[in-house]
Amino acid sequence: MDEMIQIRDLHFSYSAGEGETEPAEEVLKGIDLTIKRGEFVAVLGHNGSGKSTLAKHINAILLPTSGKVTVEGIDTADEERIYELRQKAGMVFQNPDNQIVSSIVEEDVAFALENLGVPYEEMRQRVDESLKAVNMYEYRQHSPSQLSGGQKQRIAIAGVIAMQPDCIILDEPTAMLDPQGRREVMATIKQMNEEKGITIVLITHYMDEAAQSGRIVVMDKGRVVLDGAPREVFSHVEQVKSIGLDVPQATELAWELRRAGYEMPEDILTEQECTEAIMELFRS
């Protein structure tokens, strides 16, 4: 079984409040998506495209209005297996301050394990391993308020890794961080994917972060509009721009040059590739 997450015809609307006669608008309008084990998927989209709502469906924070979401065969609507599901699919949120529970780093990392009733010896070992995996072991006795945003976010990731999940969903984990913190967090995410084989679903609106993934899903107004490898997705420059998103700068430069009549390859993604293509242009 290679399918990690299966989403079938997912519709979702926030239920209308009391006294409101008009039905709430659908936030997700029929999403079909299959994510394989070990994939690194970036979900791109503008504000209000429904990307965070989609993320919250994967570990049953929200339940579908209609349609079905399964993670490793567990239906998210199955209340009996909800803790099993949440242990398999961990989630990291945008604001590092609002997801850290304890005043001591190592106790926060242990929080999920305490909830799951993991015995002390094993808990101690898993907490230490998780902290080492995100390079925060020497900070284990610190208070989170002494740490930088990037460090706090890495603690949050460690707290999820301690559950030994098969999949981590990150909802704009770098949106509130400075460039240094963003680099740290991205490096950690990639490392988790490559070394531990954890499936990553990264919700983001930064193009350069999405470009580092293995697959990009672009969402607009509650639908999936593009789905493919970064090169493929960003080669649809006009379509990406039409839904209010940008393409990486190198891709955009190549595209502008091509529009101006120069011969540039269509699938340029990195600065390196762009430089080489331009050098090539000069030579010919």
Binding site: F93, V101, A112, N115
Partner: peptide
């Protein structure tokens, strides 16, 4: 903050004090 923290706690399988172990 309280709302977000509650969601984050749920995501980490918090369900009260029953069957909890301690670090």
């Amino acid at each position: 903050r309280a709302d977000e923290l509650a969601t984050a706690m749920e995501c980490r399988c918090y369900h009260g004090g029953e069957g909890r172990t301690r670090l």
